[in-house]
Every structure is written in structure tokens, then in C-alpha cells.
């Protein structure tokens, strides 16, 4: 394994962990359910995917690297469906937006 591969892989993993920590901070600090979902989707895109790509760079084209890539693709395909379903069901079951919210077009349109 050469140095560039090593440094790039570990740099991506450290960046990913940093963004995952930011996502957790957001999960605690942000006010309502919808804003907290933003924090979780944020975790996924740059946090977890960066960790998985870092693993791929470190391991190269082998069993582990290929699985990391497939994991990243599946997480990208599925996590947003979960976020969408949670937000829609929260709104349908009457979870209010926080007081800071500017507009709610979804409620105005009678949903």
C-alpha cells in the first residue's frame, strides 16, 4: 500500500466521522422532528458514505472494497426513502412544526 492511498483513505474516514459527529450534534440541538431528519440525512451523505469510500480506497478492489461500494449505493438508495416516509407520516399524524417555522404550504393545501 503506498502512502497516498493510505493518507487519502484515512483522511476520508476522519472527515466522515467528523460529519457524523456534526449530525449527532444537530440531532440534539435542532428543534422539531423535521429539522432533526435533516441532521440524519446529512450524516448519511457525507458522513457514512465518506467512511465507506475511505474503506474502499484503503482496501482497493477486493472483497471488502467491493462490499463497501455496494453498501454506499444501498445506503444512498434507502436512507432518503426512510426520511421521506418519516416526514410524511409525522405530518399526517399531526406533529407540529416548531414556532420558528415560516410557512407550511403542505397544511395550507389541505393535507
Amino acid at each position: 500500500m503506498n502512502d497516498i492511498q493510505y493518507i487519502a483513505g484515512y483522511a476520508l474516514i476522519v472527515i466522515g466521522m467528523g460529519f457524523d459527529v456534526l449530525g449527532c450534534v444537530g440531532l440534539i440541538r435542532l428543534p422539531d422532528a423535521y429539522n432533526r431528519l435533516h441532521a440524519t440525512t446529512k450524516c448519511i451523505t457525507l458522513g457514512t458514505c465518506a467512511i465507506l469510500f475511505g474503506t474502499f480506497i484503503l482496501k482497493g478492489f477486493c472483497v471488502t472494497g467491493a462490499k463497501a461500494i455496494i453498501c454506499a449505493v444501498f445506503i444512498l438508495a434507502i436512507s432518503n426513502v426512510v426520511g421521506h416516509a418519516l416526514a410524511r407520516s409525522a405530518h399526517k399524524s399531526g406533529v407540529k412544526l416548531c414556532e420558528k417555522s415560516a410557512i407550511d404550504k403542505y397544511k395550507e393545501d389541505g393535507n
Binding site: H38, T41, A77, N80, H84, H91
Partner: peptide, 16 residues
């Protein structure tokens, strides 16, 4: 909708 949801700061709730 999935791309919009994956981008932090925007979250697709429903569509017509």
C-alpha cells in the same frame, strides 16, 4: 425526490 432528500437542508415530504 430522493436527490432532494439526500441533499442536507432539504427534505421531500410529499408530492402531488
Amino acid at each position: 425526490a430522493n436527490s432532494v432528500t439526500l441533499t442536507p437542508g432539504t427534505l421531500c415530504v410529499d408530492m402531488d
